[in-house]
């Protein structure tokens, strides 16, 4: 066990974490949201207590973020901090207590999205990591790997207009929004790829059929989560 893993274990035991945290990561159009929703349905079908949480969805914060995005007034630091606020709200309100209560928490994007995006936007990578330093490490992270062209095609077929920040227009990469989008997303992919090994991502080829991908996801889920879950059964109690 590495020091990090040991620290994580201590933290988990201290707070009586009996649930499991499963994360999907990948660029927009990588298919991760489709996959995590299928996983959620499958778990519900099996009567497993599950909670799905999405990036940038906190009721208390999202209006502010939306307004800032609309006005195109967010700097890399405020962009980062508003997403961190959104995350903290969901973490304190749902993720953390539900993990203590034994839920399977599914997160459509987690701290790695912030690591990748904020880094590309020019925030200090170490600073970002420490801002999210309180968050528990997931039990399983699926990374959906797709070439930028495939993702762009999926995004554009459903919605012809790209948004300012998702295209990284705030970075002044290019005046052409499509060109900017491609370069920005490619840089995010680079950051994800750097994390694959260190953060133990399970890589899923996002160009496979939806069914094929889901089969891999479910197999991995059972292998990692259900096995450990039965190990822990009844042994851990929630304690304050």
């Amino acid at each position: 066990m590495t020091i990090q893993q040991t620290q994580q274990k201590i933290k988990e035991n201290r707070f009586g974490i009996t649930g499991k945290l499963i994360v999907v990561e990948g660029i927009d159009g990588s298919g991760k949201s489709t996959q995590i929703r299928l996983l959620e349905k499958w778990l519900r079908y099996r009567n497993i207590r599950v909670f799905l949480t999405e990036w940038n969805s906190s009721e208390a914060i999202k209006d502010v973020t939306a307004r800032g995005k609309k006005k195109e007034k967010l700097t890399p630091t405020t962009f980062s901090l508003l997403h961190a606020t959104d995350f903290a709200d969901r973490y304190e309100r749902n993720i953390f207590p539900l993990l203590r209560a034994g839920y399977i928490v599914l997160a459509d994007r987690y701290i790695y999205t912030a690591y990748a995006r904020d880094m590309v936007r020019g925030c200090s990578p170490l600073w970002v990591r420490k801002v999210y330093g309180y968050a528990l490490k997931p039990d399983l992270v699926f990374y959906f790997r797709v070439p930028v062209d495939v993702a762009a095609e999926r995004i554009l077929s459903g919605r012809p207009k790209l948004k300012y920040y998702e295209a990284g227009m705030d970075l002044d990469i290019s005046n052409d929004i499509y060109e900017s989008y491609r370069i920005f997303q490619s840089r995010i992919i680079e950051q994800y790829e750097k994390m694959v090994k260190n953060e133990n991502f399970v890589v899923i080829d996002g160009t496979y059929d939806i069914e094929q991908q889901q089969k891999l996801v479910r197999e991995k889920f059972d292998e990692i989560v259900m096995k450990n879950k039965s190990d822990n059964n009844g042994q851990q109690k929630i304690e304050e």
Binding site: T85, A88, D89
Partner: peptide, 21 residues
């Protein structure tokens, strides 16, 4: 909404960052 302590903390940090920059 009832904001928890860390959410509040980060929200204020964002407000501060906006003014700083």
């Amino acid at each position: 909404h009832l904001l928890r302590r860390r959410t509040m903390s980060l929200f204020y940090a964002a407000d501060f960052a906006d003014q700083l920059e």
